[in-house]
Design a protein around this nucleic acid. Structure first.
Length: 794
RNA sequence: GGGCGCUUAGCUCAGUUGGUUAGAGCGACUGGUUUACACCCAGUAGGUCGGGAGUUCGACUCUCUCAGCGCCCACCA
């Protein structure tokens, strides 16, 4: 007995049942078939440290999955693995915060143990969410970025980059986070608007002295020069002279540079080693003195004199106080400006010298832009984000991190001559802290003792390997070949400059080609007011609560609401609409179940007894199939949904079903059969088109009504609907007139307060319509006994 | 300061390469239930498509300009 006849729509039962079914049958397991083209999805491995999952996570993964399900029905060999990004700084910060730890106060091994425990928890939470949401990944193909496999792949990548001279070690002032106490990359920066004090300070020089504006007086002990614009008439007499730094009584040269902007501050630029990019540039080109003042822990060193050992902010305040006392502070004003902070912790970054490993990217900007042009961007405008990032690059990619929990550098140094000695490939994965290199002597000096590199890799240095990590998930060489490059890289826009860009960089160095052919960029989920979801604002429900309240299909329906790349506000009304859609599908299924004593589908293509309404609905369906298919091909799942909704609600449910009720209840067998056949054929197509968006309800109805006739295990591996070509000489170009006539009578009944089900004795149409042809349909569809033709007003 | 996006009915948004009376859902209002569905059906009201200028026979759609909002980048003297 069909559940459609005995139950009401109940998403909990349906979703639990089919979730389990898919898992038991391993329906989404990759099965190689050499007849089918490949569709390889390089899906983003989420940070398992993402504390709370919300509608934003649901949205971006669901949007990619709509396309994957569509492709599966189109007959592709879908390879859809899932990874978890569980190493690196994001995870460390998460653990530090949760357990109130910090790097300096805990043993490396202890720390790693806790990280592993937490990441395990995190990946389970994600797995549950993706399963509940019906994300059709192949769970037999998973990886974690801290797993031996991922470690091996990323260490191999590093070694290859070194061999190709794309990896080098450099020592210079680099971007440094004093809170995380590690080097970071340009991509790890974020702008934050803050309020600061602009201090106007008096420097001694000649009789008059100079006024210099600065927000960072704590860098005074590191001041090495002052610069003025050569055309600045206020200061021409100062060129070549010296000025004395207040409090510290040191003299620094006054130089000129055309880059100095006269109306900025007081028109005098103070160069310290090193406060900002400009300082660094001048220091390099003019070979200025080096007065390295800030240490890696963010404290002033002995050059700071009485301020030695103080943290930046404390030192700043004390120096300001002393400047006031010494009468050096002319005035102070509050300004708003943005500063670069480390995106993981919000701490303002500093330029601090240290020895780090870099991957060359600055010298190949042209190449990176060529790749941009070769890649298919969806939507196209996102290529601009990538371009702007490449244009704005100022540093090579710093990949070494002075942290604990990550992929170790596969590297030792000769204890005597410091020559770097990389691991050999057969020894990977390797942890140099615990293992020795396979060579016994330094190839340069013959020394036999080695020191391990204790740094770990930037988390992106691992995740950027995913395109070629994927092929390690299978054994068959033939299959491996087809898994790279991937077909699709789906992700949200904020990681274009990291995951996407770095993947392209690595793929270039290793293979000389793009790592993926298509890139699909989603927007962000937002709260109902359009704000970011954030823990601080407490403006979201956790994802498991959403799924429990509404069901996966309804939430997925909401996720179809934004066109690709656009942000999407959470909107309970859209979720409700999703729920209404699933209910409606259930009810149409029920209607079909009630009215089909014979569940086998007749071949509609050769039917000769199609009636006008049947032909009409098939033609409308064909248009819809064409539009929905085209939309999915263009990643326009939102448009696909709109076209489908409009056909399903306004054409199929509200009209066609009303049109055939009299035939289904009538005694003409042929007419009844044709109506049944048409309805089930059309409804099956509708279900299939909804299947990528609403996988649970469509599976339920398919299994109940259509599985027998289609002989497929699941709607999700059934064929995508095709245009139905029917052989008929019947012309229904004037069908719209019949619809207009029906609408006229509907309107009449409604405005008169008459029930649509009440049968009128007679009605005089105002609408022009071919009555001999359509009167049977009109009379029965809208219940009128006698139709009189159009009254011509005289 | 630069870039991108957004600005359409009270609300949330569609509007495909410029083409006849600008659409949907929700909300408001009116009416309708003896079997697919009240998580429903039928209908009504509601918009000078952010402002201005231009191109065109014709502009929500193309160009310029201005304004507001959002995001990214630059600016840290």
């Amino acid at each position: 007995m069909s559940k459609l006849l005995t139950e009401k729509y109940n998403f909990e039962r349906i979703e639990n049942q089919w979730k389990k079914f898919w898992e038991d049958k391993q329906l989404f397991k990759f099965r190689y078939n050499n007849q089918k083209p490949f569709f390889v999805v390089d899906t983003p491995p989420p940070y398992v440290s993402a504390d709370h999952l919300h509608a934003g996570h649901i949205m971006s993964y669901a949007q990619a999955e709509f396309i994957v399900r569509y492709k599966r029905m189109r007959g592709y060999n879908v390879f859809y693995p899932m990874g978890f990004d569980d190493n690196g700084l994001p995870t460390e910060r998460f653990v530090e915060k949760k357990y109130n730890l910090n790097k300096g106060k805990i043993k490396r091994s202890e720390f790693i143990k806790i990280c592993l425990k937490e990441t395990k928890k995190g990946s389970l939470a994600y797995k549950k969410l993706w399963n509940d949401l019906g994300i059709s990944v192949d769970w037999s193909k998973t990886y974690s970025t801290i797993s031996p496999l991922a470690v091996k792949v990323s260490q191999r990548s590093i070694i290859d980059l070194y061999k190709k001279k794309a990896l080098y070690r450099g020592e210079s002032p680099i971007l440094w986070c004093p809170s995380c106490r590690t080097a970071i990359a340009q991509a790890d920066l974020e702008d934050v608007e803050i309020e600061s004090q602009m201090n106007y300070l008096k420097f001694k020089s000649g009789k008059k002295g100079l006024i210099i504006a600065t927000t960072r007086p704590e860098l005074l002990p590191a001041c090495v020069a002052l610069y003025i614009n050569p055309g600045d008439k206020r200061y021409t007499n100062l060129v070549g002279k010296k000025a004395q730094v207040p409090l510290f009584k040191r003299s620094v040269p006054i130089k000129t540079s055309s880059e100095v902007v006269m109306d900025k501050g007081t028109g005098i630029m103070m160069v310290c080693t090193w406060g900002d990019q400009e300082d660094l540039a001048k220091w390099k080109t003019d070979k200025l003195d080096t007065r390295h003042i800030l240490e890696q822990d963010g404290r002033l060193n002995k050059l700071g004199g009485k301020y030695q050992g103080l943290k930046i902010k404390v030192a700043r305040q004390q120096i300001i106080d002393d400047l006031k006392k010494g009468d050096y502070l002319i005035k102070q004003e509050s300004i708003k400006h943005s500063v670069n902070v480390h995106e993981r912790c919000g701490t303002p970054v500093e330029l601090i010298p240290s020895k780090q490993w870099f991957i060359r990217i600055i010298n190949l900007k042209k190449k990176w832009l060529e790749y941009k042009d070769k890649l298919n961007w969806h939507p196209a405008r996102m290529a601009k984000d990538y371009q702007m990032w490449v244009d704005s690059l100022k540093w090579d990619w710093c990949v070494s991190r002075q942290r604990y929990y990550g992929v170790p550098f596969p590297l030792w140094y000769c204890a005597k001559c410091k020559t770097p000695i990389f691991a050999t490939e057969k020894d990977l994965p390797v942890n140099p802290i615990e293992e020795a290199p396979s060579i016994k002597k330094c190839p340069k000096c013959g020394h036999t003792k080695f020191e391990p590199e204790t740094d770990v890799l930037d988390t992106w240095a691992t995740s950027s390997c995913t395109p070629f990590l994927l092929k390690e998930l299978v054994r068959d060489e033939k299959v491996k070949e087809k898994l790279f490059p991937a077909t699709l890289r789906p992700n949200a826009f904020e990681i274009i400059r990291t995951w996407d860009f770095y993947s392209i960089v690595k793929s270039h160095y290793h293979f000389g080609k793009l790592p993926f052919k298509n890139i699909m960029i989603s927007g962000h989920g937002q709260d109902e007011q359009g704000r970011k979801f954030s823990k601080r604002l407490n403006n979201y429900d956790p994802s498991d609560k959403l799924l429990k309240n509404w069901g996966a299909d309804a939430i997925r329906y909401w996720a179809t609401g934004s066109s690709l790349g656009q942000n999407l506000r959470f909107n309970p009304k859209e979720v409700k609409k999703g729920k209404r859609t699933t209910t409606k599908l259930w009810n149409v299924g029920r209607f079909l179940a009630i009215n089909s004593e014979d569940s086998t589908l007749k071949n509609i293509k050769t039917a000769t007894t199609l009636e006008y309404a049947d032909i009409w609905i098939i033609e409308e369906l064909n248009k819809t199939i064409q539009q929905v298919t085209e939309a999915f091909e263009n990643y326009a799942y939102a448009k696909a949904k709109n076209e489908l909704d409009s056909f399903f609600w306004s054409k199929l449910a509200d009209y066609y079903i009303e049109f055939i009720k009299y035939r289904l209840n009538g005694d003409k067998k042929e007419s009844r059969d044709m109506a049944q056949t048409t309805l089930s054929t059309v409804f099956l197509s509708v279900l299939k088109m909804y299947a990528p968006l609403l996988p649970f309800i469509t599976e339920e109805i398919y299994q109940d009504l259509f599985k027998k006739t289609e002989a497929r295990e699941s709607i999700h591996i059934s064929d995508w609907p095709k245009i139905i070509k029917i052989k008929t000489s019947t012309d229904i170009k004037d069908f719209q007139e019949a619809l207009d006539a029906i609408n006229e009578i509907r309107k009449y009944k409604t405005t008169q307060g008459i029930s649509l089900g009440f049968e009128l004795e007679e009605y005089s149409l105002k609408t022009k319509v071919n009555l001999p042809k359509y009167q049977e349909l009109i009379k029965n569809a809208i219940k009128v006994k006698q139709l009189l033709p159009e009254i011509k007003s005289s």
